[in-house]
Design a protein around this nucleic acid. Structure first.
Lengths: 155, 155
DNA sequence: CAAGAGTTGGTAATGATTGTCATAATCTAT
DNA sequence: ATAGATTATGACAATCATTACCAACTCTTG
């Protein structure tokens, strides 16, 4: 069984969570899973462009719909980049995670965020607020993109 | 000295941090300070609309420029709401803060975020990433907007 | 095959934000 | 105070991600 076949199998299984199975949804989900392994978070636009380049002409509307449905179903994490664009990441498990994301290449590193979860839970208890949710994102430059990795060092 | 006069005085002083003094910048900054006391975070669009309603016709471009300059100068915090719109909040001090924001009315509560700062600093040290920055936002429903405050309780 | 529900994808609309540039205001040096 | 240089303003157009719309298409079911 090749890596590609494994991806397709996973995608095929997951697509049924969204409703009717369609080739387009499988393509989008498969591409999202690939992107997760390679680049971390991806935007709907870039994922669409990637599909077009790969001769998989899925409509932009369908890409947006599928990614939104995945996020709604809890199968994808969503963050916003510095321009406000939404970035998606496939989430194999069902727990909510936090990531350290490279601003240069988009690669993401899942974090152990127990300390933050505890802090947020404490705030929720003591503030008088209800339905408290938290957004925690770390961004930085990963070792591969850093100054000593053939980039463009300053100074 | 009235409250209005105090606001104007503060705004006048702060405007000089952005470069040349102009009445428009003073108006925008004053409105931002007022908004901070009343509503917490505000968007550029709503701030602009508010100025028009108050017969202070400052151009939308100028509102955007001034708010961006304030954020750049560290005199305003910026977050994104659920639609990706940028929300600004005047920051009297110079330290970076985190807030618990009510999704209903926009009121914000500054948080003691030492635990998060420490956690983020630790990640920065151990991850190999450089230029690590963090975004931490808590959202919820404040006591005034909660189910027992005349809102629309569910269930 | 026919009907019906759900899906697709091209296109248009939306809405925040940014770019442009002629005009106007502000600062500086005299 | 005034001229000159620099900077800011604001109306408008452009950009861009995202959403809405809708006619054509695809399954499933009888």
């Amino acid at each position: 069984m090749t890596a590609s076949t494994r991806l397709q199998t996973t995608a095929t299984q997951e697509v049924h969570l969204l409703g009717r199975f369609t080739p387009q949804r499988a393509i989008v989900l498969e591409a999202l899973i690939e992107a997760e392994e390679e680049d971390g978070f991806v935007s709907a636009q870039s994922l669409h462009a990637r599909l077009l380049s790969a001769d998989l002409p899925v409509g932009l509307s369908t890409v947006y719909r599928t990614l939104s449905a995945l996020a709604e179903a809890g199968r994808a994490d969503v963050v916003r980049d510095m321009h406000g664009e939404r970035l998606f990441r496939y989430r194999p498990g069902s727990d909510h995670r936090h990531y350290l994301i490279c601003t240069e290449c988009g690669v993401s590193l899942p974090l152990d965020a127990v300390a933050v979860e505890k802090w947020a839970a404490g705030i929720a208890r003591t503030s008088g607020f209800t339905a408290v949710r938290h957004t925690v994102e770390l961004t930085g430059i990963c070792p591969d993109c850093g100054p000593s990795a053939g980039g463009s060092p300053q100074g």
